[in-house]
Simulated assay, not measured.
Amino acid sequence: MTPIEILAALVALASAVSIGLVAHELAHAAVLRAAGVPHVIDWFPGSDGGLLQAGLRGEWAAVRPRPGAETPAWLLRVSAMMPLALVAPLALVPVGVVADPFASEGVARFAVLGWMACALPSPQDFSVLWYADRAVDAAAGSTAETPGTDAATDGPA
């Protein structure tokens, strides 16, 4: 690769990650909105040091659901895993509907790689996946422990 191609690949990768981070959070919000669960989208949540600094750290957006007592835990779990849908178009590659971006040379493969990285669930997403029932219980004002958990370790017994 020439220096110009390397620069173009870096720009494509950074752009795809930037757009993908926002798409990741909007995927969470889409499920919550479709189900009527109140939520807040915080744009640049770590902007105490300025927007540029928050953007360079990758803190573009964050979705904060506000589940009610009647919100099913499975809905929060689906919302937590929804960013996986960002790679759905790549499922059409083996069928031949979409061209394989990794089969040819060029910067498109770097953009696809950045986009795919944003489809991975974050550690917070996995926390919601495993402990969504606790969020619903907290919203209901329940102080009782969830069966099968140990409050001292905040994990399964």
Rank of each mutant, 00 (worst) to 15 (best):
V37H: 09
A88K: 11
W115A: 02
G55N: 11
P101C: 03
M82P: 04
R33L: 08
G58K: 09
I19D: 05
H39T: 13
V136M: 05
A111F: 00
P123W: 12
A35S: 09
G36N: 09
V98L: 08
S79Q: 05
L76D: 12
S79E: 03
A88V: 15
H24R: 14
G106V: 08
V98I: 15
E105D: 13
I19R: 07
W43D: 09
T143R: 10
V17H: 03
A54Y: 01
T71L: 11
P147Y: 00
F44Q: 02
V112A: 12
P65M: 11
L21K: 06
G141K: 04
A23L: 15
G148I: 07
L90H: 06
A111T: 00
G141A: 09
E59R: 13
G141Q: 06
F44N: 03
V17K: 03
V107M: 00
R57D: 08
E145K: 03
L21T: 12
A111L: 00
H28C: 15
I6Y: 02
P83G: 06
G155Q: 08
L51E: 04
G49Y: 14
L90K: 07
A119T: 13
H28T: 15
G46V: 01
F44C: 11
L10A: 15
V63I: 14
S127L: 07
P147G: 06
A139T: 14
G148W: 00
A35Y: 01
A12E: 07
L120H: 04
R134Q: 11
V63N: 02
P94K: 03
Q124L: 09
W43R: 08
P83L: 10
V107F: 00
A117M: 11
H28W: 07
V78H: 02
L113C: 05
E59I: 11
L113M: 07
W130T: 12
V22Y: 04
I41Q: 04
H39G: 08
L75M: 14
L51A: 14
A30M: 07
L129I: 10
W60F: 15
A80K: 03
Q53W: 07
L26K: 11
S127V: 07
H24L: 13
Q124W: 06
S122N: 10
M116R: 01
F110T: 02
P65E: 10
A91N: 05
G49L: 14
M1T: 12
F126K: 11
V97K: 02
P3D: 10
L21M: 13
